Each structure stands twice: as structure tokens, then as C-alpha cells.
Computed example of a mutant assay.
Amino acid sequence: MTRKKIPIKKIDNINARQVTFSKRRKGLFKKAQELSTLCDAEIALIVFSATGKLFEYASSSMQQTLERRNQHSGIQGLDNPSIGQQLGSDSFGMLPLRKEIEDKTNELSQLNEEELQGLKIKELQKLEDILQRRWTTISKTKEAKLMEENQKLKQSFLQEQRQSYESFTCSSSEFPPDNGSSDTSLKLGLSLFE
């Protein structure tokens, strides 16, 4: 019996995505270790999760492997003071943006119920306030959409009633008028349309 081939696309379910990430990461690290052992290859593997967590595997030393890679390709690493200073300095105004991205990434992972361990009471209360504000915003948005949809349904219903009334009055006018003294005609009408 063969395995079912899954399409390679982003998994929408967060829990299923996390489980798949964990299993595949372990499998990837196992394959890297096997390749290193079988072929006597020096391997360094770095993985960042969607929440920003770092996972790494190195057959020997990660630092030595990265240095060797940088020497081999002619790229100077972050050990170079000029590059390190450029990246670390705020000459481009990037420091506040980096801090904001880091804060938002942490906040997002906490809202996804990840990395909640070690949070203090004030941080948990802040997280609760954020969730409450978002819940209120979502509720108001949904309420507005429902009110709009309700209004459209009312208009559609009234239009159907109007058409039904008009078709009934048109069909009743096809009868010849009674010239007698008694009025035997039936008159129906809705007060909504007067």
C-alpha cells in the first residue's frame, strides 16, 4: 500500500502546521545526520519556525562550518566589524523597525497561544486586553455586515410583496365591471404601499 501524496502548499490549520513542522524538522535533521555519517560531510542546518524560533544542527561546529562557508564563497560574515557596525548601527533608521517587528512577532506568537510560559501577570493582562479589543472590533464588523444583509433582505421581501400585489390587482382588473347595484368585488391591499 502506497502513501497518499499531499500537495505542497501552506497548511491552513495552525495545529496541523505545527505538528507537520515538528515532524518534518526532526526528519530533516535525521537525514542531515545520516548524510554526514555516510559521506563524512560537514553539515550545518539552520531552521527558523514561523514563530521565529531557531533550530539548528551541525555535524561538527556550527561556527566553524559557517566560517568555512564564508571563506569558500568569499563572503565576509558578521564577524567583519564594518558589516557588523553597519547592521548594528542605526544609520538607516532600521533599529526601531527591527524592534517593532520583533515585538509584533512575539505578540503574534502569544496570540496564537505559543510562548505563553514565563509571562508575568501584567503581560497576560495586556494580552487579554488586546484580545478583548480585537473581539469587540470583530463583533462590531460582523454586526454591521448582518445589519446590512438584513436590510437587503427586507428590501427584497418588500419588492416581492409589491410585485405580488401588483400582479394580483392586474389580474383582478381583467374581469368586466358589474353594472348591478350591489358591489360584490373583493378589494385587497396592503397599508404598507399606500
Rank of each mutant, 00 (worst) to 15 (best):
S164F: 06
K4Y: 07
D178L: 11
G180H: 09
L190M: 15
G27D: 00
E148W: 08
E113A: 12
L190P: 04
R24P: 01
L28P: 10
A32Y: 02
Q159K: 15
Q76E: 06
Y165K: 08
G180V: 09
G27W: 02
T141A: 15
L131F: 03
N70G: 02
R25D: 05
K5S: 07
G118P: 05
K53E: 15
D12Y: 05
K104C: 10
L158T: 09
Q63D: 08
T184V: 09
I46R: 05
K53Q: 08
G74A: 03
F21Q: 05
S173I: 06
Q33Y: 00
T2C: 03
D183P: 03
T37V: 03
G93K: 03
Q117D: 14
S167L: 10
L28V: 03
K99Y: 07
S109V: 00
I11V: 15
N106I: 02
K122N: 11
M1L: 04
L108F: 06
K187D: 06
M94Y: 02
K122E: 12
E67A: 06
R134N: 10
L131I: 10
L192H: 13
S182Y: 12
C170D: 15
I8F: 04
T65N: 03
Q155Y: 12
K5E: 09
S156A: 12
S61A: 07
E107S: 08
E115Q: 15
S59P: 02
A44V: 00
S91L: 13
K145T: 05
D183Y: 08
I121G: 07
D178E: 11
K120Q: 14
G52K: 07
